[in-house]
């Protein structure tokens, strides 16, 4: 059965949540992690892009900027990192 973008979004969200405050992930790190998890035959970059878009559009994750751009849970307003 093919993996859906919703499933990948959920798996990405779990990683981001688990490591929040401990490790920052770039979109490419998460894409790699997903390809490793599901295998190249099931998941590609396009699917991961669509999954990340779901997380962003729903507001469950946000992009943060700290030298590079990272995907994290929504932070508190104005908190300096």
């Amino acid at each position: 059965m093919a993996v859906t973008k919703e499933e990948v979004a959920e798996a990405i969200y779990e990683i981001v949540k688990e490591y929040q405050g401990k490790k920052k992930f770039k979109a490419s790190d998460l894409t790699k992690a997903m390809i490793q998890k599901y295998g190249e035959a099931e998941v590609d970059k396009k699917l991961c892009k669509a999954a990340i878009r779901i997380l962003m559009d729903s507001g469950r994750c946000v992009y943060t900027y700290f030298g590079g751009s990272f995907i994290e849970l929504p932070p508190e307003e104005g908190v300096e990192r």
């Binding site: 962003m56 559009d57 992009y63 943060t64 900027y65 751009s69 908190v79």
Partner: peptide, 20 residues
């Protein structure tokens, strides 16, 4: 000024530069 760096509009990761 200090760089906030965590503001934006829903769904987008670019286009807003946070400044406090």
């Amino acid at each position: 000024w200090k760089h906030g760096g965590i503001v934006g509009v829903m769904g987008y990761g670019g286009g807003v530069i946070g400044r406090y």
